[in-house]
Nucleic acid binder design. Sequence first.
DNA 1: CTCGCACATGACAACGTTGTCCAGGCTCTA
DNA 2: TAGAGCCTGGACAACGTTGTCATGTGCGAG
Lengths: 345, 345
Amino acid sequence: MPETARRPENRYGNRPTMKDVAARAGVGLKTVSRVVNGEPGVTPDTERRVQEAIDALGFRRNDSARVLRKGSTASIGLVLEDLADPFYGPLSRAVEEVARAHGALLINGSSAEDPDREQELVLALCARRVDGLVVIPAGDDHRYLEPEIKAGVATVFVDRPAGKIDADVVLSDSYGGARDGVTHLISHGHRRIGFIGDMPRIHTAAERLRGYRAAMEDAGIPVEDSWMSLGVTDPVRVRRAAEEMLTGPSPVTAIFTGNNRVTVTVVRVLAEQPRQIALVGFDDIELADLLRPGVTVVAQDAATLGRTAAERLFRQLDGTLIAPERIELPTRLITRGSGELPPSD
Amino acid sequence: MPETARRPENRYGNRPTMKDVAARAGVGLKTVSRVVNGEPGVTPDTERRVQEAIDALGFRRNDSARVLRKGSTASIGLVLEDLADPFYGPLSRAVEEVARAHGALLINGSSAEDPDREQELVLALCARRVDGLVVIPAGDDHRYLEPEIKAGVATVFVDRPAGKIDADVVLSDSYGGARDGVTHLISHGHRRIGFIGDMPRIHTAAERLRGYRAAMEDAGIPVEDSWMSLGVTDPVRVRRAAEEMLTGPSPVTAIFTGNNRVTVTVVRVLAEQPRQIALVGFDDIELADLLRPGVTVVAQDAATLGRTAAERLFRQLDGTLIAPERIELPTRLITRGSGELPPSD
DNA sequence: CTCGCACATGACAACGTTGTCCAGGCTCTA
DNA sequence: TAGAGCCTGGACAACGTTGTCATGTGCGAG
């Protein structure tokens, strides 16, 4: 039996192919293809016969083969830090909506803030020949993407800029937002203001820190080291950092927090304090308006971030876009009470 | 020129193939394949030559072709209601983690609670020949999936059961959870208790309503129609529904809410009321512990839901699993204050 | 020295689809 | 009635990879 088995034991059983449909309908292979794709040049009668065969066999076109033949996968990849983070939900959804409008599916993965995992994911997506990539970078060196981009994979970075390559970037004005937030605290009489943020190797964290420093400098306030806590996001350490700022030799009367997770923890800590401490947080958080006091935040619009990036991606694919660009979206200060508390000493 | 162009104008430019690598390395096509896949039977020297050619050309294996040949796509689909809903973030992430552990990518889409869109998405995923599907159903008839399941697409439904087909289901004990929550209110002296939930055509909503009714009946309390509001989730209508219950002829002293979105809105409404109204909500919400009073909830574990479903999916693929099963995960009552308020009249 | 064996390598078909091209049958017109 | 032109349908190659099998080479044992 020199002939190889007609059908290997695939995971997806033995699904009917166009050939099977053609045989059953008594027509040629290509005619089935025409019917399936709604191409012209098929008599209504033939079409009906083919359609019957399709229904009878439960045929469904194998897009893998189609992709191989056509070259475009009609899918885009989204690599973000953590799907479970409430900040990325709306962003992800916005990207999906745009993809859907362009008839593309969305493949997404979480990098868990690990550059290696980011690269692994991105390259896996490239191997699948996604048409484009929306990446929220974890690493700071994306030269590994150069051959891919050159090969035609549309790429847009979101939330943070790409490292060491020239690419489209869509981000919020972290620097300006943080400066506004801290200036807001200063305008309410605060001078000893703490900052708790993520590792400065993360671009947004560094920018927000820069905004904090700028606001303080504009007001002529020298910043003490003990007021700043960097690279701290897990609840236990944020708690300790906040408590130290509040009880140190030069205790702060207000805190600016660098992202939603830090803000949530600090809200908890402040709720336990005997005296009232002002707070402004970067990123909006749900129910912030219902707390007493309400939490004043510098809000960024995650959905717009995602939508803008995805639309830019598809414009790259259209060929409408030429040069990479950096788009910065403004933030919005939402006052709810916590940022308007006066200094308590 | 009867010969067709060697390379059509693909979206992804002209990427090098194994053939190109083979030519450059001066070896056969199959040898390149062996190197790329780490198969044995290649001299170190040959391997080095091939590897050099790969690096020089920036070759990356085309997984579309691989998929076509091998039959398995190493990817699974997740269809949920809305990626942006904080309840689905952790679920989605959990599914992704399990997929990752099995070397699979995750393709996901939002049905927006629209049965047609759900079907469209699911079938698109099937056409891509995903190995399996995790579906949070929007519709209540999934017979359209029968040919797919028969063809070998592993399928697990989450959060709500499949309609009219026999399939694996993983869900929370909505009935028991709701009954516990309402019983909790009754045990704190409430008799006029309101219920605000989603459309009863959604299984979880119906089950929670059933739990509410059961708890009331167990306590011998006849339920008045004006205490129940069904099919209402958007903030404006939830607000109106809540206000009507509070001011009607037989005003409620406590409210049980059927999901996180409803809970959030009701919390807002209750914060405006002159008298204190007790509240227990289904689904935990972030910062619920920081509100005054804290929000008592019936919590379900979205991550465990997702993880359980995904693990079951891969056990289907292993062939370890035979018969479809229905797995019900317990809920947990978390008391924080709002559910322990006494009746205010 | 030779036979056989292990091992490295490559030729070839196949996966299921789509693009190209050609054949046959029909209608329409001169 | 013959030729031109259109419409329908099918044969075939190609997409880039992997599985099967055949070939060639070198080496050790008898």
